[in-house]
Amino acid sequence: MDKYEILVAGVGGQGVIFISNVLGYAAQRAGYKRVVGGEIHGLAQRGGSVASYVRFGEGVYGPIVPLGCADIIIGLEFMEGLRHINRLSKNGALVLSNVRVPTMGMMVNNLAYPNSLNVLSKLQTLFDRVFLFESRNTPCHFGSLGLENMILLGAIVNHFLDFPIGEEDIQESIKTLTKKNMVERNLEAFQAGMKLRPLIT
C-alpha cells in the first residue's frame, strides 16, 4: 500500500495520543519511510475532545488528514468517532467503540445519548464499512476499564485484512512505549481485542 491515513478520536484520558504513537512507531517498523502525525489536545485534561492523525507512505507531508481521505477512523468513544466523518474516504472503515460519554451540555439539558444501533444502521447506507466493537466490557484479565484503546487496536489488526500494520509490529511498539509495569496489561488487552467480533458490520 503506498499511503495510509488513520484518524483516532476520543475524549481526554482514553489514550488517543498513546495509540497514535504506537501506530506511528509500528508504521516505521513495518517499513514505511514517511510517517507524520498530528494532534489537537488543547483541553483534553478537562474532558474535551481529542483527535489525532497518523499518516504514512508516499506523498504524505503535512500533519492533517484531508477531507475524505482517511482510510480508517478509530472512535474510542462513539460520538467522537462520528464527529470526524467528513475526513473518511468513501471506502474507508469507520470503527466505533461502544464507550459512550455524554457531554456536559447533554447532561445539563437532559438530552439522551444517541442510540448506537439506530445511528449505525443509517450510516451503513452512506458507507460500506461501518463497525461497532464492544471494547468496553470485553473479557480481559485486568478488566477492560481504561484499556479500551488497546482492545480496539487488537480488534482492528485482527479484523481488517487490509490494515497495513501487523500484529508483531504493533506489539513491539507497545512494548517500547509502555511504562514497564503496564506492558503486560496493555499486551493482554491487545490480545483480548484480537478475539473480538464486531457487534455490527
Partner: peptide, 9 residues
Amino acid sequence: EFTFPRDPV
C-alpha cells in the same frame, strides 16, 4: 444530528 459539542468542563 448525533454529535453534540464537547466543551471543556
